[in-house]
């Protein structure tokens, strides 16, 4: 399973109501801020789904 971020829903981190909440919630370092957008490193993801559950834009899903 891989984490998918819908770029249209996400916008950029500067527009996020949670100011990049998914990055702050992720404790495995799988989500990072790369040039103002959220980047996913699937190899670090533990699939805890905290980011999916708490994204204020509902932009995160799993495939």
């Amino acid at each position: 399973m891989a984490i998918i971020i819908d770029a249209d829903k996400c916008g950029h981190i500067q527009n996020c109501p949670g100011e990049g909440l998914c990055i702050k919630l992720c404790e495995t370092g799988a989500l990072t801020d790369v040039d103002g957008d959220v980047a996913v490193d699937d190899s670090k993801c533990d699939e805890c789904d905290l980011c999916i559950q708490n994204c204020p834009n509902q932009a995160i899903s799993k495939q």
Binding site: G18, L21, K24, L25, L50, Q53, N54, P56
Partner: peptide
Amino acid sequence: GPIVPIARGLL
């Protein structure tokens, strides 16, 4: 509200 980020002080 989003209780996990609130409880962690992120929101």
